[in-house]
Every structure is written in C-alpha cells, then in structure tokens.
Amino acid sequence: MKKSILEAAKVIRSKNAGPFELTFDIIFKNAEYFELFKSRQIINEEKMAELLQIKREDIIGIVWFAPANAVKITIKRPMPSGAPGETDIYGAQQHAPLLKIEF
C-alpha cells in the first residue's frame, strides 16, 4: 500500500529562484527517507512534469542535497514574476501538486 509523502517529508515548499525560475524543495524527515526517495528515484523529471503539468524541457534540474536531506526541483517559471496574468509574485504557493506524491 502506497503512503503519502507527508509521512516522509517535513517541508514541501515552492519559491522564486530569481524572477524567472521557480524552485521546489522537499526536505525529508530523516536520512533514511532521503536515501529511500533518492535510491528509488521517486522524484524524477517525468514525474515532476506530470504533476506540475509542464513540459519536461522546462525542468531545469533536480538536485539531491544530502546535508539537508532534501531534493530540489527547479523549473522555468510559468511566466516571469509579475508578467501579465501572474497569480503568485513570490511563487510561494505553487507546491500543492507535490503533496500528492506517494511512495
């Protein structure tokens, strides 16, 4: 039976990385969960593109950062911060789709 990522992660957030990129951080509760997610590649480009409904080429990178037991996913911002049609200048409320991840 699959479990929700909320069992494994203590922080799931999004934020601008400058006005042209959006970055998501998932910080795991401990090194075991970090290793589990990393070794099974539960977070990968295909999965992220599907969850965020973006093109795969708009994913700039997925970096596993052991010192923080974290994985960082950076994407091209759907539009530059503050461009016409903007909904979230700081990009701080775009993380909800990641709450659906299961393992």
Binding site: T23, A68, K72
Partner: peptide
C-alpha cells in the same frame, strides 16, 4: 545542521553551486 543546510536551498536553483559577482560559492 538541518536548519542551516535547509536554508542553503532557499531561493536557489542549485544548492551546491551559488553564483555571484566574479565567481561562485562551491558547497
């Protein structure tokens, strides 16, 4: 350790390489 390391992620696209004027911080 976690709070400091986690902050290194904040608002950056790559936590290992932080570019700035004249060079980058390599972590």
């Amino acid at each position: 350790c976690e709070s400091a390391a986690a902050h290194t992620l904040y608002e950056k696209s790559d936590p290992y390489h932080l570019p700035g004027p004249g060079g980058m911080i390599d972590l």
